[in-house]
Amino acid sequence: MKLTTYYFTLSGMILFNLMFGPLVRATDSGLACPDWPLCYGKFVPEWTFHIFMEVGHRYYSGAIGILVFWGLFRVYKSEGKGLLFRIAILSSVLLVSQVILGALTVTKLLHPTTVNLHLLNAILLLLTCGTIALLAKKDTAAWNWPPQAWQIFVLLLVGIFYQIFLGGKVSSNYAGLACPDFPTCYGEWIPPMEGNIVYQMEHRYFGYLLALLVFGTTSYAIFYLKAEKVKFYLKLASYLIVLQILLGAFNVIYHLPKLLTGIHTLNAVLTLLACYTATFYHFRKVS
């Protein structure tokens, strides 16, 4: 298997895990095993649905971990100690921190801060593996610095990452139904900011601003940039952000269906990946 295929496959596995994790939480399986890394002191515990979700997530994450370390070895063998190797080392460091955060998520009884850090660290791991996959394609020749309007692209990535963080706060603080209606909250556009309503509304407000930023960046690329790949991935991000708003609305209207909450997280990460890939090609010269 070619290196680029290996890392695209690995990135796909991590992406699936970013939906698997929220499903563990949505099904109230996060503390199905009170201990870590074993479950009730056993490597293979007695199965219930909740234990299956929790232990399945652990086993699947363990398989990903093995592949990340094997990828580091493959990069070293094929590319030496260059840029790809340094990024692969970073992915291994992020993997170690992900394991530690996973353990803390259990031992700290799903503390919101730990849960959020666990999610964000997983996304960073995905981005590092995705970067290796893109660089290994060798369809870009060199860094293009400073690219046109690079600040907008950086702001876009930071904005999406922050919005995912806000979504994590909503989930980890069980604020998904703090407002029973959408797009208003208890019939008000600006409700009293108290209790869990704060988490819900700051996520919504920033989501609206982020949607405008995605649409604006896409429009700018269409009219002023020449790179077709940048335009393609930004257009994709625009479609995904519309879908994300609809998924958010359906989550509220239908009272957080378990599968839909996982898809909502998955789509948010896909939006980030689309914008990240557009930024990658904006900062690299196509060979």
Rank of each mutant, 00 (worst) to 15 (best):
G130W: 01
K138E: 12
N267K: 08
L3M: 14
G80E: 06
L120H: 00
V214K: 01
L109Q: 15
T265Q: 11
T140L: 13
P22W: 01
E46I: 12
D139R: 07
T128E: 00
L3P: 06
G65A: 04
N144D: 15
Y60H: 10
P37C: 08
A63C: 14
L155A: 15
S171H: 06
G80P: 08
L246S: 09
K229H: 05
L259S: 04
V286G: 07
L157Q: 10
P34Q: 08
L119F: 12
Y7T: 09
D181C: 11
G71H: 03
A175G: 07
G102H: 06
K2Q: 11
G30C: 12
I152C: 11
Y40N: 08
Q200E: 15
G71A: 07
L240W: 00
L126W: 11
V230Q: 04
K235G: 11
L134T: 05
L95I: 03
E54R: 07
G262E: 04
L127A: 12
Y224H: 15
F250C: 10
L212C: 10
K42V: 06
H264D: 00
R284M: 15
S29E: 03
L3W: 09
L67Y: 11
K226Q: 13
I87H: 00
A211T: 07
P34F: 09
I14N: 00
I87L: 08
M19L: 13
L273V: 09
M201F: 10
V170M: 03
D35I: 05
C275A: 04
L273P: 01
F16A: 01
V269C: 05
C179W: 08
S92I: 09
S238A: 07
P180I: 09
Y276H: 04
K229T: 07
A268M: 05
N267T: 14
P37A: 10
D139F: 09
Q244C: 02
K285D: 11
Y276L: 00
Y6G: 03
N17L: 15
V68K: 01
K42T: 12
A237M: 02
A32V: 02
F232D: 05
Y40K: 08
A103M: 15
Y254F: 15
E79Q: 14
G168Q: 05
H50P: 04
P45E: 10
